[in-house]
């Protein structure tokens, strides 16, 4: 009966030092072995997965930012290009207008110059003609004078002579 009470209180055998030592050794051994062969690799794997996921998220975030940046750049570029094209067209239009005006201007100037030179030529010709006429009149006067001097003429003859000369002159002409 005493054994029964004892077993109720402390189990079948009570406190056995040997069991305790064995338990300690087994447990520490189990701890070491599991740490090396099971928990270590398992936790490494979980850590690796965590890192992997974090890394993936980082990468995704980065490429999203990159894409956004590129899109922004592209739209800016497009805008700049459009602006450039606008400028070029504007320039061309301006240049064309300028050229048109220049051409007109130069044509007008040329026309004026030609007109001016024509007038000058006409003037010169006229002067030449007047000069020639004057020369002829002078020589004719000299001839008349000499004719008058050659002949002492009566009033009547003189008149007839003058008329003759005038007639001659008229015929000659």
């Amino acid at each position: 009966m005493q054994g029964f009470t004892e077993s109720l209180v402390l189990g079948a055998g009570g406190l056995n030092i040997g069991d305790m030592i064995i338990q300690l050794v087994f447990f520490l051994g189990l701890l070491a072995l599991l740490g090396k062969f099971a928990w270590g690799p398992l936790m490494n794997m979980m850590k690796e997965r965590e890192d992997y996921v974090a890394n993936e998220i980082n990468t995704a975030e980065k490429s999203r930012e990159e894409a956004q940046r590129m899109q922004r750049e592209a739209s800016e570029e497009l805008k700049a290009t459009r602006q450039d094209a606008q400028n070029i067209i504007e320039d061309a239009r301006k240049t064309a207008g300028q050229q048109e005006r220049d051409i007109l201007e130069s044509a007008r100037a040329e026309a004026d110059r030609i007109k001016e030179s024509a007038r000058q030529e006409i003037e010169q010709e006229k002067e030449k003609a007047v000069q020639a006429l004057k020369d002829q009149v002078a020589s004719m006067s000299v001839m008349i004078a000499s004719k008058v001097i050659e002949k002492e003429l009566s009033q009547k003859d003189q008149e007839a002579l003058i008329n003759q000369y005038i007639d001659e002159a008229g015929e000659e002409r």
């Binding site: 079948a12 055998g13 056995n16 030092i17 040997g18 069991d19 064995i22 338990q23 087994f26």
Partner: peptide, 10 residues
């Protein structure tokens, strides 16, 4: 003292 059943079961 050893309780061999404990040792076995451990």
């Amino acid at each position: 003292d050893f309780n061999l059943s404990n040792v076995l079961m451990m």
